[in-house]
């Protein structure tokens, strides 16, 4: 862990003061935009994502549409979201992979067979990025889909997990880490794990860095455990919103 070799081994605290198994602050809101069918705003630390859902709507294309609803994902990474101002094109490979991963994950959790010949459009606006981008997108999309009232078997919740030592170093005492920020992501091997609900059913697993196989199990276990915490937090957000909605109708 070249970034904070000195501090981590001494106090077992990361650069931002968290322990190995602590999540960053997650703040979420649903129904943030009146114009969309479903919308949400999610902050995981300094990663900020707005998600809007359009649909399920009729497919306008000729010859399109099957017996299941089609899930389309659009990701728009704002030019000002990173440290340096950078304009990403829509054809960026990394973005394309994220789109595919998200669409794939939700096509298994949403009851798409209830909406034949229709599309569900998920639009994600990334306003600020500080690590765990894919995880934040998945969580935000889950909340927005709940707001849109699209039936699903359970929440898809995601978080990242890493390991304190890089691939090459033979550090036996390497700790797994939960919920990496962008400076940690740059240095350390990490994976994004998404589970369906609070169980141990992994539905998304993406790893783009190299790690020793022995460390993978620990990382995965920590990640799945983190997903349980995330689900708890998202569930509270949904319940709070539901309660507010019911109160506003009753009064």
């Amino acid at each position: 862990m070249p970034l904070d070799t000195s501090s981590y081994s001494l106090a077992l605290l990361r650069l931002d003061g968290r322990r190995w198994n602590e999540l960053r602050r997650i703040h979420a809101q649903i129904s943030t935009q009146a114009a969309a069918d479903g919308s949400s705003y999610l902050e995981m630390g300094n990663t900020k994502v707005i998600c809007t859902i359009a649909g399920p709507a009729e497919v306008r294309r000729t010859g399109g549409g099957g017996s299941d609803a089609e899930i389309k994902v659009e990701i728009d990474i704002a030019g000002f979201s990173g440290v340096e101002r950078k304009k990403r094109t829509k054809t960026d490979k990394r973005v394309a992979e994220m789109r595919y991963t998200i669409a794939n994950a939700f096509s298994s959790s949403l009851l798409t067979h209830l909406y034949p010949r229709s599309t569900i459009q998920i639009t994600l606006h990334i306003l600020s990025q500080d690590g765990s981008l894919l995880a934040a997108c998945l969580n935000a999309a889950t909340l927005a889909l709940i707001d849109a009232g699209i039936p699903m078997t359970d929440y898809i919740v995601a978080c990242t997990a890493g390991s304190t030592s890089s691939y090459s170093s033979n550090d036996e005492s390497a700790d797994p880490l939960l919920d990496l920020n962008s400076s940690e992501e740059m240095e350390l091997p990490f994976l994004t794990v998404g589970t369906l609900g609070a169980g141990e059913k992994v539905s998304v697993l993406v790893m783009e860095t190299r790690a020793q196989i022995g460390r993978l199990e620990g990382m995965l276990a920590v990640g799945v455990d983190g997903c349980k915490q995330v689900r708890e937090i998202l569930d509270q957000v949904v319940r709070r919103h539901g309660k507010k909605l019911v109160n506003s109708i009753v009064e």
Partner: peptide, 22 residues
């Protein structure tokens, strides 16, 4: 609203139009 920018703002219209500028 965005700590990573020099200045940012968000405006919401009641009809659901929403914009963010960084």
């Amino acid at each position: 609203i965005l700590p990573g920018t020099n200045g940012s703002a968000r405006i919401c219209f009641p009809d659901g139009n929403e914009a963010v500028v960084g």
